[in-house]
């Protein structure tokens, strides 16, 4: 049986807080307001993979080696994504949001917490099919430089394509999904044209501020890792970035309802978790 060492003893909890504080002081990555249970599991995983017996040993290592910190970041950030995850979300964007977005002469869209880019390519494909991609600028941001690089590369394991294709079709896809990628060496290499309008950038919802006005913000399955306080910080950024009557799309289990900005948004597509700035 492969039990994470020392987890979940209280020593672990103390050391975890010290680690998070140390990371903040040294690298300015702020995990202090993340939900602890998941963070703890991921650090326990990192311990096993990075062959440290205690969190303190891990802390010693990452404080003195940025390379080891980067390794740890892969565990802390949950780089898990999927193209057209929750097809109904993308279908609602296509059917309900796009008709309104197409009334703007030019568009700016912010995908916050884009991870390895699956959501970015999904949205780019959708906008392309709806004739909007050419006049859109997409900002795709994340705190994990490794994920951002992979997002920019646009190369995904071929074995995921079956799921991605099914999702694409369920999301109202209009072509053959294989039109968008070339298969080679066990990978699907996505068409470069899809990212011509995309700017990938390092940006933290925990420490950075708004960088542009946008008409649509998509931030999915990122806020579930934040405590309420940090969620409110992120929502305030989205509200500030969005233009009057701009759209905010969230993950299928996320809502603005209990946040500090709840009265500044209205529900636009309730089940698909798309909100609109009042």
């Amino acid at each position: 049986m492969n039990l994470p060492i020392a987890y979940p003893d209280s020593d672990f909890d103390i050391e975890l807080r010290l680690l998070i504080e140390g990371i903040y002081l040294k690298y300015n990555y702020d995990f202090r307001n993340y939900s602890p249970a998941s963070l703890k599991r991921r650090v326990a995983h990192a311990l096993a993979q990075m062959e440290c017996t205690t969190v303190s040993a891990l802390q010693d290592r990452i404080l003195h080696s940025p390379q080891h910190f980067l390794n740890l970041l892969q565990f802390l950030t949950v780089p898990v994504s999927e193209m057209f995850r929750d097809p109904a979300y993308f279908l609602a964007i296509r059917d309900k949001v796009v008709p309104i977005l197409s009334t703007y002469p030019s568009l700016k869209i912010w995908i916050a917490g884009c991870s390895t880019g699956e959501e970015v390519y999904s949205l780019a494909i959708l906008l392309h099919e709806e004739g909007l991609l050419e006049r859109t600028l997409i900002y795709a941001t994340d705190i994990n430089p490794h994920s951002l690089q992979r997002a920019e590369d646009g190369i995904f394991p071929i074995e995921h394509l079956k799921l991605f294709t099914a999702n694409y079709l369920a999301a109202g896809g209009k072509r053959a999904f294989s039109d968008y990628y070339t298969a080679a060496y066990g990978s699907a290499i996505f068409d470069r044209a899809l990212r011509r309008q995309v700017t990938f950038a390092d940006h933290s919802l925990a420490t950075d501020s708004v960088f542009s006005e946008t008409q649509f913000v998509s931030c999915r399955n990122v806020l579930i890792y934040f405590n309420r306080e940090l969620q409110d910080r992120a929502f305030a950024l989205f509200r500030e970035s969005l233009c009057h009557r701009g759209f905010l799309g969230l993950g299928s289990k996320e809502t603005v309802q209990f946040s500090a900005v709840s009265d500044q948004f209205e529900s636009f597509a309730r089940h698909e978790r798309i909100f609109r700035k009042r």
């Binding site: 949950v78 399955n221 289990k253």
Partner: peptide, 9 residues
């Protein structure tokens, strides 16, 4: 004693 959700693998 609150719930959290995660999409980790």
């Amino acid at each position: 004693r609150t719930f959290s959700l995660s999409v980790e693998a």
